[in-house]
């Protein structure tokens, strides 16, 4: 069974609280633990932060569309923006540099840290970007313990 909803918000850091509230409620509906709810909420926050910083250059008039798809065993969150093309190679370089810096206890860059956190807590992190239509970030998190569901005529089953 799938539930779907979307939010259209300006690329304004003030909106992050609203985003987090909605994502955390959606995660609770799927059945994630408190720890998982916090993790997914953090990942979406980091995704939005990257869009505001890198795709809209911290301009608050951009648009971010947040789509949430709730499944029995997972949540899929899509962040769509219409800003400048995301430099995926640069993002990956940042992530590796941050990981290396942390291992060596050196200086950590904020952007790289956010990407690293997203990858740490989500099961899938997928980007699509184009110079004409902006970027799409797709984040997927599976339930570690899917809920038991009633199957008509055959008791209950998991999975």
């Amino acid at each position: 069974m799938e539930k779907y909803f979307e939010l259209k918000i300006p690329s304004d850091p003030k909106m992050m609280r609203l985003v987090r509230k909605n994502v955390s409620l959606a995660c609770e509906m799927v059945g994630f633990s408190e720890r998982e709810v916090n993790a997914v909420t953090l990942a979406v926050d980091e995704g939005c932060t990257n869009i505001i910083r890198h795709c809209y250059g911290e301009k608050t008039q951009g648009v971010i569309i947040l789509r949430l798809r709730l499944y029995r065993d997972k949540i899929v969150i899509v962040l769509k923006d219409f800003g400048s093309e995301m430099d995926l190679e640069e993002l990956e370089r940042c992530r590796k540099k941050t990981q290396h810096a942390m291992e060596k206890r050196g200086p950590v860059r904020p952007g790289g840290l956010g990407v690293l956190l997203m990858h740490s807590v989500m099961d899938k992190v997928q980007y699509k970007t184009s110079p004409k239509s902006g970027s799409v970030l797709r984040l997927t998190k599976y339930l570690s313990h899917p809920k038991e569901v009633e199957v008509a005529g055959s008791g209950s089953s998991t999975g």
Binding site: R20, L42, V108
Partner: peptide, 16 residues
Amino acid sequence: EYMDSSGVATLVEGMQ
């Protein structure tokens, strides 16, 4: 109650 990478990076900068 909540901190993201912006907050963490701010503290890293403070330490530096």
